[in-house]
Amino acid sequence: MSSGRLDPGASIGQIGDIYGAGGLRALAGSFTFWQFAANIALFMPFGFFLHQASRWPGIAVVAVGASASMLIELSQGTGFFGVFPCPYRIFDVDDLIANTAGVVFGLVASYIAIGLLPFTRPPRLPDLAPPGRIRRAVAVMADLGIGLAAVTAIQGVGVVFEALSDGHTTPQPADLTPTLNTWVGAAVALVLGVVVPLVRADRATLGQAVMNIAPVRTAQHTTAPAPWAVGVRAVIRFVPWILSPTLLGPVAAMIELACTFLTRERQSVAGLASLTRTRSVPSIRADRARGDAPTVVMEPLT
């Protein structure tokens, strides 16, 4: 894997040739073999701990691992999408294959651990307390991370297809204008911040869904927000990052966090403007089952 390749299995073929010519001794001294093995080993903890922490279905864990590997390869092969005048490393589809295989091995190890080790099967506790600031912040960061990944993927796919159409074996640096980047970011924000929540019955974003929380109307603790409220939340959360990811975005995030310390129900600016608050999905379901009476629990410290 000394040069960028877009032909799947080339490294595996080289490893087979090395083994056929010199056996295990030759394989043990092969850089190609050890680099391929290292790429597998690198992503095994990723698959193991992601499954242990999330308990997502196996296919979801593999999909997230493969996506993470793809983003790494695209950033390496394009000089961070044109930020540098040339790629600082290479794009190699075999690295993607090896990384994904590592996720699969880690996933298998997680299933084995669940079957053998009792401490990997903690008892389920009712999730009825108001979600803390850390949990809500992680949901926001997940939304921003998903958005960044989507923008990067869109740009990267264009780079790869351009390279293939021009007959290159390695993707070339992207030549993307600031205006195009802004429009791509706006399109992704529209989908993630408006379209996805409106499609979902609970009006949650993907980041909120990952953390098992959802917004509700301030005056009606089990009713999903109105469509206009979804739009308001999306504008406040995403627009600053689109306009200025190095200044306005971080400042807006700090203001949002500060607002949760100043309001009685720990609402953010987005929550105040859209007349919504955030609750855990199990608590919403529990209140609906008992007739829309808010669940009374001790609030967490975070």
Rank of each mutant, 00 (worst) to 15 (best):
I59K: 01
I59F: 01
A60N: 03
A60P: 01
A60W: 01
A60I: 06
V61Q: 02
V61T: 15
V62F: 02
V62W: 00
V62G: 01
A63V: 06
A63W: 04
V64N: 01
V64D: 01
V64G: 02
V64M: 04
G65Y: 01
A66C: 12
A66H: 06
A66P: 07
A66Q: 09
S67C: 13
S67R: 03
A68Q: 10
A68F: 13
S69H: 06
M70R: 05
M70C: 07
M70E: 04
L71A: 07
I72G: 05
I72E: 15
I72V: 15
E73W: 04
L74N: 04
L74S: 04
S75R: 14
S75V: 14
Q76P: 01
Q76G: 08
Q76A: 11
Q76C: 03
Q76I: 00
G77W: 06
T78G: 07
T78F: 05
T78C: 10
T78N: 04
G79H: 05
G79W: 02
F80H: 09
F81V: 14
F81L: 15
G82F: 14
G82E: 09
V83S: 07
V83Q: 09
F84S: 11
P85W: 04
P85I: 11
C86R: 03
C86F: 12
C86I: 07
C86G: 09
P87C: 10
P87W: 08
Y88R: 14
Y88S: 10
R89E: 11
R89P: 03
R89V: 00
R89M: 09
R89W: 14
I90P: 00
F91T: 10
D92C: 10
D92W: 08
D92F: 10
D92Q: 05
D92H: 10
D92L: 08
V93L: 15
V93Y: 04
D94C: 08
D95K: 02
D95Y: 02
